[in-house]
């Protein structure tokens, strides 16, 4: 067995186990599906009148405008929920099996991240079907829309690396709020309800530097095939991935020290 084959096999094993558990226990999957649906219903349904605000000129309509937010939110929180799963594994002792058997332990981290992406893909598919039924308008080219979904799926990595960093450091479910709250704050300090240009005051100043803003603005631009901060969004994913990758690897070392 080569080192690479062993590593890949461990990643696949961990990701496959997480996915099996997720599909076998609806109690674990339903919250991941329910959260974005509630947001979608509340934002796209309840706040649809915001589309009449002067200056709101999103060509695909308010439902599509909110779909992008819900898509990113669902994907990122798919990653956070995987952090919960890792914390549960440490609490139950199951993580010891992984730490004992996997020769190169970075495979554990990557295995969880891959399983988070699978989870996110399931949720994103579900959200998209519901949004299409609710009137989602995909104006952009297939390539643009594909890039939107790729961007949203990769943002899941940021959520999972952050949450895994917390889970591996504290190894208990008691820190679940620490995994969620920063992403809630980041998401809601971005242009959630109206485009960035319509925000003003302190929230505009924060939104201007909030990395999630670039993801949402790029996503909304891709959905309708317009120009937007797409390059910056990819940079956010790349830099965020590197920083949070280092953060979660350090947490793995902390877990190894016991």
């Amino acid at each position: 067995m080569t080192r690479r084959r062993g590593w890949t096999s461990a990643v696949a094993g961990i990701a496959s186990r997480q996915t099996r558990v997720l599909l076998k226990s609806p109690a674990l999957l339903i919250p991941s599906l329910l959260f974005p649906m509630l947001f979608f219903a509340a934002l796209a349904g309840g706040l649809a009148e915001l589309a009449r605000v002067p200056g709101f000129d999103y060509p695909a309509g308010y439902t599509s405008f909110q779909f992008v937010f819900v898509l990113f939110q669902a994907s990122m929180f798919g990653g956070v929920f995987t952090g919960f799963a890792a914390a549960r594994d440490f609490e139950s002792g199951f993580a010891r099996r992984l730490l004992l058997a996997v020769p190169h332990r970075s495979a554990i981290l990557v295995g969880y991240v891959v399983s988070a992406m699978v989870r996110a893909a399931i949720i994103m598919a579900f959200v998209t079907v519901v949004a299409l039924l609710a009137g989602l308008d995909l104006i952009g080219s297939p390539l643009d829309v594909g890039l939107l979904f790729a961007l949203a799926l990769l943002s899941n990595i940021l959520g999972s690396l952050w949450a895994l960093g917390i889970a591996l450091r504290f190894r208990t479910m008691n820190v679940a709020p620490l995994m969620q709250v920063p992403f809630f704050v980041l998401l809601f300090l971005a242009p959630v309800y109206v485009p960035l240009d319509l925000l003003s005051g302190w929230i505009r100043e924060i939104a201007d530097v909030n990395p999630v803003t670039f993801l949402l603005e790029a996503g909304r631009a891709l959905l309708v095939g317009e120009a937007g901060p797409v390059g910056t969004a990819w940079l956010v994913i790349l830099i965020g991935g590197i920083i949070l990758g280092i953060w979660s690897l350090a947490a793995l070392r902390s877990a190894e020290r016991g």
Partner: peptide, 27 residues
């Protein structure tokens, strides 16, 4: 190693544990 608390996942079957363990070891 078989440690004090058997580290098993209640949602998985015995066979699924076997396949996971084998994958972890790169078999």
């Amino acid at each position: 190693a078989a440690l004090q608390e058997a580290a098993l996942d209640r949602f998985l079957t015995g066979w699924e544990h076997v396949r996971l363990q084998g994958a972890l070891h790169g078999m």
